[in-house]
Amino acid sequence: MTAVDTVRHVIDKHGKLKADVANLAEDADLYAAGMTSNASVNVMLAVEDAFDIEFPDELLSKCTFTSIGSICSAVKGLLEAAA
């Protein structure tokens, strides 16, 4: 499973979107697709579990969790920093 697939799975489980995650573009706005603030917290915690990472305070912006692509980008950066 790729990182994008993993993030899609997490969003499908915790994002509470009104749209089908499988058909969502990587740059599609998750908030516009129905993700609430609280759901974004759950997505963040589930992504941390999935990749064994922790989002530092400086990444806790709305932008970080705006799209599948932005989440994957943040995950990639954290994994590279930990390597």
Binding site: H14, T36, N38, A39, V41, N42, M44, L45, A46, E48
Partner: peptide, 22 residues
């Protein structure tokens, strides 16, 4: 406005990690 159920659900799934982050 925030549904109480959302907090209950987050606590059930993530427990202390949810509490500590928020």
């Amino acid at each position: 406005i925030h549904p109480v159920f959302n907090v209950v659900e987050s606590l059930d799934i993530f427990g202390d990690r949810y509490l500590a982050r928020v």
